[in-house]
Design a protein around this nucleic acid. Structure first.
Length: 527
RNA sequence: UGCCCGGUAGCUCAGUGGCAGAGCAGGUGACUGUUAAUCACUUGGUCGCUGGUUCGAUCCCAGCCCGGGCAGCCA
């Protein structure tokens, strides 16, 4: 939803421990790509070609691939398995080589021992860091330190070589460098971890809502309402920009555009979400969102994913309860199901990560009225760059102070001045006209700032029209939205959670560009 | 968009108004149940681009491009 001014504290200096240079890490990890099945088939074919006929018998043509994760978690030795993945690093001895193979199924790679007497041993020389390989072998208890299982190869094939120009090295890389090779960075340790967490967290989002009887609604990506707020939206058009159709007056003739009117990429599914909440009661959306603002910060992207639940017969308190339960569910789920990846993040990205996540899980979030927050800030004795005055938006530095220093935990600020919030937020009753507030709330977390923005919606027709007038919005553009108040209106509330910001919080990664597979930011849309 | 910082080998960086440096990666060899292995040798440069100052510019100046941090906009 587009709300008037908000901002988010910038990343926390997680303790004083510096982020290790090149917190990224090592050579890499390797993603499972769409063509993985083809690769698998090719690898099998290669085996048939390269292995001597006599040994083909012992090599089932339809041998099932074992993921590295499965191998590392095996309960006991395995007589025969097929691994397919990418070489992380190789260490040669005179009589054998160690090849570390990773397939992206988990953070760790499996150690493959290839004996020099193996007929395939010549292949090993081609298996540089980054090469894709297929390995047949036995899973045995490792004789070395550092891992429980190792694979003794009985067959070894390089599927695709990677020469010395492969950009991922066996050393740390900066996040900035890896951004420039977004097609290869999922093979690095950190990005492998981040995107596995991302996948799991997306699953946890659905799990949380589905278990609570919420229905998943697909709100439109293309929308015609351009007046939800002052923010810039991306135009969607099929008009010939070189020679656009004109009206007799010379203006652009939008009636001749694809949809017969001006259309945009959505900045929020909320208004449409309300339609479904007032029918299915509890709904949520989870999809891409677009903002054309020229934002150049570590926590803004032009394309990001947002989760927006909307609940009928719910007030602001219920909304805040839901938001808190939701955030905690996501953290708990990641802690439980992405333990190794988060430990890695804690080790190389943000030393205070795990302790902070656990701390957040254990404590109830603080709640604080906007008016009280202003007072806390004014009495803090802190010199802020921006003065604190009732009626003004809280600046980044203010929000940061509240969540990182005053409360030292996530805090929900609610009941904001009406003038600085969106038209659809419910007017609080019985307040002085110069101190009029709406039932809005922002959830602030240390290190990121605003991670959730929500409100109880104005369900009263008269008050909603008043709010629209206040924000100079034409009622004719919102006739269907007003209809929801004309027919069977109910108190309802919802919020928006920035998925990437949640990921930043959970992984400790400080830049939003590093938790999105392919970041879209001003001036940047490579890949 | 504004303010600030940066751009030198594939990567991370040092450096100087007068022959361009290190570590890692790559290559060659040695050695070791190794594990960011180790050791020796070695390849590798439009010093972001354009212009200016200068006998001479990677270095000083200006403009531009790119990256980053912070702020605003927000999730």
């Amino acid at each position: 939803m587009r709300l008037p001014p908000r901002h988010a504290p910038r990343k926390q200096d997680h303790g004083t421990a510096p982020r290790p240079a090149g917190s990224t890490h090592q050579d890499g990890q390797h993603p499972v790509r769409p063509g993985a099945n083809c690769t698998a088939r090719r690898a099998l074919a290669d085996f048939r070609i390269c292995l001597p006929p006599g040994r083909l018998l012992g090599f089932a043509p339809r041998m099932k691939r074992t993921l590295v994760k499965e191998a590392l978690n095996a309960a006991g030795p395995m007589e025969s398995l097929l691994l397919q993945g990418w070489v992380r690093t190789r260490r040669d001895a005179k009589a054998f080589s160690f090849v570390e193979v990773n397939d992206g199924s988990c953070l760790k790679g499996v150690q493959v021992i290839v004996d020099a007497t193996l007929p395939d041993y010549a292949q090993v020389a081609r298996a540089h860091t980054g090469a894709s390989v297929a390995v047949r072998g036995r899973l045995v208890a490792s004789q070395g330190q550092g891992q429980k299982w190792a694979v003794v190869a009985t067959g070894f094939t390089v599927v695709g070589e990677a020469d010395g120009t492969y950009p991922l090295q066996k050393k740390g890389h900066t996040l900035e460098f890896l951004r420039e090779i977004a097609h290869l960075r999922p093979r690095s340790n950190l990005f492998g971890a981040v995107f596995r967490v991302r996948s799991r967290l997306a699953y946890a989002v659905h799990q949380f809502f589905q278990e609570r009887g919420f229905h998943y609604v697909h709100t439109p990506i293309i929308t015609a309402s351009d007046a939800e707020g002052a923010g810039d939206m991306f135009r969607v058009t099929t008009l010939d920009l070189e020679h656009p159709p004109r009206t007799p007056e010379g203006a652009l003739d939008h009636a001749r555009d694809f949809f017969g009117r001006k259309t945009f990429l959505t900045v929020s599914g909320q208004l449409e979400g309300e339609i479904f909440a007032t029918a299915l009661s509890n709904i949520y959306t989870f999809g891409p969102t677009f903002r054309a603002e020229n934002s150049n910060t570590s926590r803004h992207a032009a394309e990001f994913w947002m989760i927006e639940p909307e609940v009928a017969f719910c007030d602001l308190a219920g909304d805040m309860d839901l938001a808190e339960a939701f955030v905690k569910h996501l953290i708990r789920d990641a802690r439980e199901h992405c333990a190794a990846d988060l430990e890695f993040c804690g080790k190389f990205v943000d030393p205070g990560l795990l302790a902070r996540l656990d701390f957040v899980l254990e404590r109830p979030f603080q709640r604080c009225r906007y008016t009280d927050a202003v007072e806390i800030l004014q009495r803090s004795g802190r010199k802020f760059e921006h003065a604190v005055a009732w009626g003004d938006n809280l600046q980044s530095e203010h929000e940061r102070y509240l969540t990182e220093e005053h409360f030292r935990c996530p805090v929900t600020v609610y009941n904001y001045p009406r003038a600085i919030k969106a038209f659809y937020m419910r007017k609080n009753d019985g307040e002085a006209p110069d101190r009029q507030t709406v039932a809005a709330m922002d959830l602030l977390v240390p290190g990121i700032g605003e991670i959730i923005g929500g409100s109880q919606r104005e369900e009263r027709l008269a008050e909603l029209r008043e709010g629209m007038a206040l924000h100079h919005l034409p009622e004719k553009d919102y006739w269907w939205y007003l209809d929801l108040r004309r027919y069977g209106t109910v108190p309802h509330a919802g919020f928006g959670l920035g998925f990437e910001r949640m990921l930043m919080f959970v992984t400790g990664v400080a830049n939003i560009r590093d938790v999105i597979p392919f970041a879209r930011t001003p001036g940047s849309a490579e890949f």
